[in-house]
Design a protein around this nucleic acid. Structure first.
Length: 573
RNA sequence: CGGGGCGUAGCGCAGUCUGGUAGCGCACCUGUAUGGGGUGCAGGUGGUCGCAGGUUCAAAUCCUGCCGUCCCGACCA
């Protein structure tokens, strides 16, 4: 490709509304442009990267025996009513009506459509297992789109759905997809981790996320320092510490105006880890009490995913208002404690392990010191895992300690089980001639997000540094002063021809620009390899090579350049 | 959806408080010189000041409403 015939839309200045580096660089390098909130046009440069990512995903999915399909982006409401999600999905589902006033949605995911296809086309256990995938545009009407294509409303996803006669077959394909995903992210050249994950609203029993490690990531991942344990913090089990400290006598102390944990712990000169906070939350119709209490150490934070598993708790979690808190406990928030409450009480393992703790006295302006569960709490309570793990916690597998890192979720695999197939009556005949509901798995990769994640992980102060595998061009030719120097022009054109013939994706910067402009643009765009052709070098029969990460360039004899590139670029074609 | 900020040329901004000719840098076009790190000089193109209404002799500027957009809190590839 000649730069003179390719849209090079680089910008010097960073658009004011781009927060994270990948968003800034994608705009500055001329990969994307915003059309509206959460909607982006992919310019030629960006699209080349996107296609590279898609190609790798496609190759690996095909190699794993998955079959590519393409489903409509617009889906009829009837299918979503079959699974109940037309009601349940909420505002993120963009609903539209056609000219006949029929309801449709712009697909945020495709379980319904694929299950409909499967029940129509799959009749016998003999055609199972089957795994279908597509690379397609999704739309989720996010409350708050941000970070450019990282969290856009319209985005491209590779989604795959597998169908099975039984659980064993699902397990097998799930393992195979796990391995396939690992291979895909390895080939993409990304530093990633597979972690245990919560099934989330899509449901299902077993689930792993694939995260690209980056400080800008929105997720926290817990690792063990000693073992291969890795889990999203949403799921990571917080193990109960040894019962610590010694019993003290119970003492009621006046704590006027001291409400928050920080205030109380500094007022009483007692560490937050030896205090207890009591959160009063609303319940749903499955609970005969209007409120319940969650108890954590003052130093811990509530893990809402874990809390949501408590039976009867409203979802999403809603804190009780001040009036409700007073009715239930006799005190205002800030003086509430877990002792002798009349509502159900759930105590985090770590809080339950305290031998003596500070808590609200359920009387405005008073707290207890030295409280003990066994001695002082005369009402029932349940001990559960409620807190987020923190650095230094013991790993749940008993080996090593927890470390936390930030990650960008780029892939997620689920075992869906039979929930969709059963709701939509998707059955096949088994070996006994009996109709049996299929088991399903589902496997997603955020294709557009992968592009942004790759930049988060690979950039410097001059711009993007593409991994070879997804670079928009493998290498660039930068002929200097070619519009004046016949020798440079001829050498550059000849080299360009040879490199193209050899199959390289090469960008020939034939623009009539000064060297500094070319260097800056090529670096901003992240092209991993660069050859400079100049009068100076040609006199000595050399070209100048520089890898995007190299500090210095080196000279290569003109005659050896093809062999040299073959070596440098090996593995990337 | 709640709270806050911002809407002036493709991008980054000033001007708004205190009403009176719409400005700067980058980009873009022309000419010229230059030719190894976003080059210099000269000239130039481009804006219903987010939209609508109001106040006023006069509105980018004051008032009202709406829209868009970004940031902070509940979901997810």
């Amino acid at each position: 490709m000649r730069a003179s015939q390719f849209l090079i839309a680089t910008q010097k200045e960073t658009p004011a509304d781009a927060e994270i580096i990948s968003h800034q660089l994608m705009l500055r390098a001329g990969m994307i442009r915003k059309l509206a909130s959460g909607l982006y046009t992919w310019l030629p440069l960006g699209l080349r990267v996107l296609r590279q990512v898609e190609t790798i995903i496609r190759e690996e999915m095909n190699a794993a025996g998955a079959q590519e399909v393409l489903m409509p982006a617009i889906q009829p409401a009837e299918l979503w009513e079959e699974t109940g999600r037309w009601q349940k999905y909420g505002a993120e589902l963009l609903r539209v009506k056609d000219r006949h006033d029929r309801d449709f949605c712009v697909g945020p995911t495709h379980e319904e459509v694929i299950t409909d296809m499967a029940r129509n086309e799959l009749r016998s256990y003999k055609s199972l297992p089957a795994n279908f995938y597509q690379i397609q545009t999704k739309f989720r009407d996010e409350r708050r789109p941000r970070f450019g294509v990282m969290r856009a409303r319209e985005f491209i996803m590779k989604d795959a759905y597998s169908f099975h006669v039984d659980r064993d077959s699902l397990d097998e394909t799930y393992e195979q997809m796990y391995a396939t995903y690992s291979r895909i992210f390895e080939r993409l050249g990304l530093d990633f981790r597979a972690v245990q994950a919560d099934g989330g609203s899509i449901g299902g029993s077993s689930s792993h996320e694939f995260h690209v490690l980056a400080d800008s990531g929105e997720d926290l991942i817990a690792f063990s320092s000693e073992s291969d344990f890795a889990a999203n913090i949403e799921l990571a089990e917080a193990v109960a510490p040894e019962s610590s400290g010694s019993q003290q006598s119970l003492e009621k102390v006046a704590t006027p105006g001291q409400h928050s944990i920080e205030e109380v712990s500094s007022f009483l000169q007692i560490p937050a880890a030896e205090t207890v906070k009591t959160l009063i939350l609303r319940t749903d119709e499955n609970c005969d009490q209007p409120l319940l209490a969650l108890v954590l150490r003052g130093s811990d934070t509530l893990n809402e995913i874990k809390a949501a598993k408590i039976h009867g708790l409203s979802e999403p979690l809603v804190m009780a208002d001040e009036k409700e808190v007073r009715t239930a406990t006799g005190a205002a928030p800030g003086s509430v404690g877990p002792l002798d409450l009349k509502i159900p009480v759930y105590v985090d393992r770590a809080a339950a392990a305290l031998a003596a703790f500070v808590c609200g006295a359920n009387e405005d302006g008073f707290h207890f010191k030295g409280a003990s569960w066994g001695r002082d709490c005369h009402s029932q309570y349940t001990v559960v895992d409620l807190r987020n793990v923190v650095e230094g916690d013991p790993s749940p597998d008993g080996k090593g300690q927890i470390q936390l890192k930030r990650g960008i979720e780029v892939g997620h695999i689920f075992k869906l089980g039979a929930q969709y197939a059963s709701a939509m009556n998707a059955t096949v005949l088994d070996a006994n001639g009996k109709a049996t509901v299929m088991e399903m798995g589902c496997y997603g990769i955020g294709v557009t997000r992968v592009v942004a994640a790759a930049i988060e992980q690979n950039h410097d102060e001059n711009g993007i540094i593409w991994p070879d595998a997804i670079a928009p061009f493998s290498l660039a030719l930068a002929p200097l002063n070619m519009h004046k120097s016949e020798a440079v022009r001829e050498a550059a054109e000849a080299l360009y021809r040879d490199l193209q013939a050899a199959g390289y994706a090469v960008l020939m910067d034939d623009r009539n620009e000064r060297p500094g402009v070319k260097f800056a643009d090529l670096e901003l765009m992240g092209i991993p390899h660069r050859l400079v052709i100049s009068d100076r070098g040609l006199k000595e029969g050399t070209l100048e090579y520089k890898g995007r990460r190299d500090a210095e360039s080196r000279n290569v004899a003109q005659a050896d350049v093809l062999d040299f590139l073959k070596e440098v670029l090996s593995g990337s074609h």
